[in-house]
Design a binder for these strands. Structure first.
Lengths: 224, 224
DNA sequence: TGAAGAATTTAGACGGGGCTAAAGTACAAA
DNA sequence: TTTGTACTTTAGCCCCGTCTAAATTCTTCA
């Protein structure tokens, strides 16, 4: 089976929304994510349903079928592997790669993507800390929590970002918040939920609660 | 300026035909190369002419404008750089890369292609021996002649192929005819123009005149 | 010069994917 | 239970790139 560019984009959008907000996925949610009109979404949903990539009941949203989910996962695999390539091999920074990977993920060739995977030495996470599915579509979620849910004085490592906007990633760069950074919450300001962090062994920095809710961390053992 | 996939394909086709058979390029030649109908070609030619990518006079064929030619060479640059990547980095063989590069060449990002160029260490020729234009679209033709035009007992090196079909490339592989191979014509059979070659210092092999007309060689100095 | 035959273009249609405007459905609040 | 509002779908249109069938133009040769 080979799908059109638009079909692939819809499958990925549905997958992402379902991942975040659960199923069923509404027409308007898809329209908003894809920067398109609800009427256009409805048209495409019919086509995807005809191809048995989604389960669709009029007025009641959609969910991916097994086939649809598999296809979406493979797209995500391709997207994330290409992001690794762009960052690790070509020297792009993590805020520059999304649009390019968005194009590269549509290249049709199973051999290509498997060889790329090997060439990159089978990375398990992409430059934003998102897990990369294997060729069968399987991947394991890393143990992670939002920085905003991390208690005081618990050593942790920054492992992922929830928000992928360039401006956000650049903000993190400017504040030395890179994946793998060790950190610890020193204080949470009650007024607005801002968080004071110690990064590595440097001076504490202040980030907004808004930012803290976009960062995934993994607690490290006290001894580490 | 950004062009659609179909427009890019047409520009490249026109460029290739013009390169081989000169200008003007006929509607039917384009249709044949692109596996499409002459009527479809005519439609697209009007659009390309409106965008000033080609000079088009009804019933009299087309030629690329400066802008069109520039766009075509950039596509060829992308195609050939991706072929290098696939062969040199991912381990594909030269008969497997065309279709994949055909997709990759449409990825839109100047930065990407320039970084890829650097990553590959600015190759001047692709895996088939075709020259790679630089970012400005310029490239130098290598001195080369067809093997069928090489005289007897002149040492030469195989530098390129005129035919890119997988089956042809595989045939070359099976006969150890790789780019860079040194060779010398031992005999030309008068009956059908078959050529007996000494390859390196091995036993002579026989290839058809048909094949000899698809191989580019460069003469080496006697002393080499 | 004037057809015949080949090449090319036009006319009209179609599927993919998108849009607007209008109509239909669901659901929460009264 | 009814009704207002938000959401979704339908109807009808558009552009892109392709096609077939028919008409046109070029070219060549008698």
């Amino acid at each position: 089976m080979t799908y059109t560019l638009a079909e692939e984009d819809y499958l990925k959008a549905i997958y992402k929304i379902a991942e975040r907000h659960g199923t069923p996925v509404s027409t308007s949610a898809i329209a908003e994510l894809m920067q398109t009109r609800p009427a256009s979404v409805t048209d495409m949903l019919k086509k995807l349903a005809d191809k048995e990539l989604i389960d669709y009941k009029r007025y009641h949203g959609v969910s991916l079928t097994r086939t649809g989910a598999r296809q979406a996962t493979l797209l995500i695999r391709k997207h994330r592997l290409w992001e690794c390539f762009l960052v690790d091999k070509l020297g792009f920074s993590w805020d520059e790669v999304h649009e390019i990977a968005e194009q590269l993920e549509h290249i049709q060739s199973d051999t290509l993507i498997d060889r790329l995977d090997d060439y990159l030495e089978n990375p398990k996470f992409d430059p934003h800390g998102d897990p990369i599915p294997d060729a069968s579509g399987a991947y394991r979620m890393r143990y992670q929590i939002l920085l905003s849910d991390l208690g005081l004085h618990k050593p942790a490592v920054l492992v992922g970002v929830r928000e992928h906007a360039s401006s956000f990633l650049q903000y993190l760069d400017q504040n030395r918040l890179a994946l793998g950074a060790t950190l610890e919450v020193v204080e949470v300001l009650p007024y607005d939920g801002s968080v004071r962090l110690r990064l590595g062994d440097g001076e504490p920095i202040l980030i907004s609660g808004q930012v803290a809710r976009q960062l995934y961390v993994r607690q490290t053992t006290e001894s580490a």
